[in-house]
């Protein structure tokens, strides 16, 4: 690819990303009331999306090969336990990550 072709390719990626981010705001203007159905989605979608993002993060974990997802499962359980106990975001995240790093570097 030439430099111009590279720039066009990158601009296309920028355009595509921005379309997905801006489209809802163009479709539903702040002046007019947002349709009830869209408000309903706006309220209930996030819980489902956070679930989707967790699965997305774990998509390369194989239960049948390698470490069988044991480091991931153990670390996630620790994150949940720490969070229910202290409810301090940073402690839960740091605890789970350190646990995972120790497991994959030293144990497995």
């Amino acid at each position: 690819m030439t430099l111009i072709q590279q720039i066009i390719t990158i601009l296309m990626i920028v355009l595509g990303t921005m379309l997905t981010r801006f489209l809802p705001f163009f479709l539903f203007s702040p002046e007019k009331p947002t349709p009830q159905y869209v408000r309903y989605l706006g309220k209930f979608l996030p819980s489902a999306v956070f679930g989707l993002l967790i699965i997305y993060c774990l998509k390369n974990v194989s239960l049948l090969e390698g470490t069988h997802g044991i480091p991931e499962a153990a670390s996630i359980l620790l994150v949940i336990a720490l969070h229910l106990w202290k409810r301090q975001m940073l402690i839960s995240i740091a605890g789970g990550t350190i646990c995972y790093m120790l497991l994959v570097q030293l144990v497995f």
Binding site: M12, K43, L52
Partner: peptide, 22 residues
């Protein structure tokens, strides 16, 4: 192809936008 692939991979942003309207 770059554009369509981007739209597919980033389609989840549509959900974010809908949730963030308010």
């Amino acid at each position: 192809q770059a554009l369509t692939m981007t739209l597919m991979i980033n389609a989840r942003h549509l959900f974010y936008g809908i949730s963030m309207l308010d």
